[in-house]
């Protein structure tokens, strides 16, 4: 049954990079995708990448950034929890002004001032976007649209 197979492949692909391809029998691709996405994500963390949060001042952009982050899967949630001390996806209203007060706002401010952060943030977004493409690729393979 293609529908169930495609669903399982997509869910696995989101849970761990390459897992969807492994489930579909594409072992080499699965291994390469796992290494590439994990390396990109790890570089993002090593260079103090900023996990994006939804900011009411920039709704469209911040939603897209969070979407890119979430694409990486559960490991992004674990990293986010470690960085902010909580699983936060939204900027608290009190941090919307020039002086942040919450731990999320303070951590974002600290990372914004770091020279490494622009690189790290780009790596984090790229890892998420790569994984979203992997989910779509796993879907195409599962329904027979691609080899």
């Amino acid at each position: 049954m293609n529908g169930a197979r495609a669903t399982i492949a997509c869910v696995l692909a989101w849970l761990a990079p390459g897992a969807g391809h492994l489930y579909l029998g594409r072992r080499l691709r699965a291994a390469v995708f796992f290494v590439v996405v994990m390396t990109t994500f790890s570089l993002g963390l090593a260079f103090e990448g900023k996990p994006s949060v939804i900011d009411r001042r920039q709704p469209l952009l911040s939603y897209l950034q969070v979407f890119a982050n979430v694409g990486t899967g559960p490991m992004e949630a674990v990293a986010r929890e470690k960085i902010f001390g909580q699983l936060a996806y939204r900027l608290p209203p009190e941090d919307a002004g020039p002086d942040p007060h919450s731990t999320i706002g303070l951590e974002l401010r600290r990372r914004t001032q770091s020279e490494k952060t622009p690189y790290g943030t780009a790596y984090l977004w790229t890892a998420g976007l790569m994984n979203i493409l992997l989910i779509l690729d796993a879907f195409d393979i599962a329904i027979g649209r691609k080899q």
């Binding site: 390469v32 390396t39 790229t126 790569m130 080899q147």
Partner: peptide, 26 residues
């Protein structure tokens, strides 16, 4: 690593490896 160039090369390497495996079979 604070070199823009090294970051660019690393990034290019990762992205091109990803797309090579995503879009080609042989």
């Amino acid at each position: 690593m604070q070199s823009h160039f090294l970051h660019m090369v690393t990034f290019s390497g990762l992205v091109s490896t990803f797309f090579a495996f995503l879009s080609r079979n042989e």
